[in-house]
Computed example of a mutant assay.
Amino acid sequence: MSTTIEISEKSHVAGKAKAAMSVAPREGAGWKKGIAIMDFILRLGAIASALGAAAAMATADQTLPFFTQFFQFEAGYDDFPTFQFFVIAMAIAGGYLVLSLPFSIVTIIRPHAVGARLLLIILDTVFLTLSAASGAASAAIVYLAHNGNEDSNWLAICNQFTDFCQATSGAVVASFVAVVFFVVLVIMSALALQKH
């Protein structure tokens, strides 16, 4: 008397397929992980440009002697409320970018984590707006400093305060570099949130 157990081939094949599916990584994890790594690298670049812009503007200062050493003309960022706003806004944006790095690391470890990615896209959009507003307002003041406005009798001061104008112009350019980084970060986060 022999006992044989028959195993149907269907259940054997189904078991192999289930085992293969449990071992295989989730579909789309590769490119989402690549976007997350690129997100982290772009955040480092945005930190450098935002904090560099704030530091360049905060140190923009030049003094010109007039007739004597006691009577001098001085130009500093704190003479312009727009430049003060610029320094504060870019410093806050840089601080946010530093604080966002752990969330960016979470998206590298867990590419399909929606919560961290959604938080980053919302906050990136907010700080994109703040950076663009401060950069655009400061760009208008820098333009007036370089060219003046004859209709309003505003004189161009950059002929005299060349170092001050170079520092403020560089800060504005750095802020727009940070804005470009923010735009790319928002686009990449939107792509990573897609299901397919």
Rank of each mutant, 00 (worst) to 15 (best):
V184S: 13
F66W: 05
H112V: 10
H146T: 13
I37W: 02
Y143I: 00
A132Y: 11
L128G: 08
P65Y: 09
M38E: 13
V184I: 15
F71M: 14
A55G: 05
I92C: 13
L118H: 01
F103L: 13
V98S: 07
K195D: 15
A29G: 05
I37D: 00
A116P: 13
G34N: 09
R43G: 07
A60R: 05
S175L: 02
I35Y: 07
A14L: 14
N153F: 06
Q160Y: 06
Q72W: 09
P25M: 04
S152N: 05
D39A: 13
P102G: 02
A17N: 03
D163E: 13
W31A: 13
F66M: 15
H112T: 10
A46N: 06
A167N: 09
A156V: 04
F83N: 01
A136S: 15
F71T: 14
S104Y: 05
D39P: 01
R117D: 07
V180F: 11
L99S: 11
E9V: 08
W31F: 13
I105K: 06
H112E: 14
G148Q: 08
T68K: 07
G52C: 01
A19W: 06
S8T: 10
A56N: 09
W154F: 10
G95S: 10
T63E: 07
A46E: 04
K18S: 07
A190S: 10
E150Q: 13
A93H: 02
G148P: 09
F161Q: 02
L191N: 12
T3N: 11
M1A: 12
A89L: 08
Q84H: 10
L144E: 14
Q72H: 14
A24H: 04
C158I: 05
A24Y: 01
F103P: 00
G45R: 03
G170L: 08
W154I: 13
V177H: 00
I41P: 02
R117F: 02
T125E: 12
I37Y: 04
I47G: 03
V183D: 03
I157L: 14
G94H: 07
A171R: 00
V114L: 14
A136F: 03
P65M: 08
A178H: 05
I7C: 04
A50N: 01
L144T: 06
S169V: 02
Q84D: 14
S189K: 15
D61V: 03
C158M: 03
Y96R: 06
A132S: 14
S11C: 01
Q160S: 15
F127V: 15
M1D: 12
A116K: 09
A20S: 09
V13K: 14
I41W: 00
A136G: 13
S131N: 09
Q194I: 14
F182S: 09
F67I: 09
A17I: 11
I121H: 04
F73Q: 11
P102K: 08
A93L: 10
A171S: 10
L130C: 13
A171T: 00
L44R: 05
A46T: 02
G170S: 08
L128P: 04
T59F: 06
T68V: 03
A19F: 07
G135Y: 07
I47V: 12
N147P: 03
A178V: 02
F71I: 15
G115W: 12
V172Y: 02
I47E: 01
P25D: 10
Q62K: 10
L119C: 09
S134A: 15
G94S: 10
N147A: 11
L44M: 11
S131C: 15
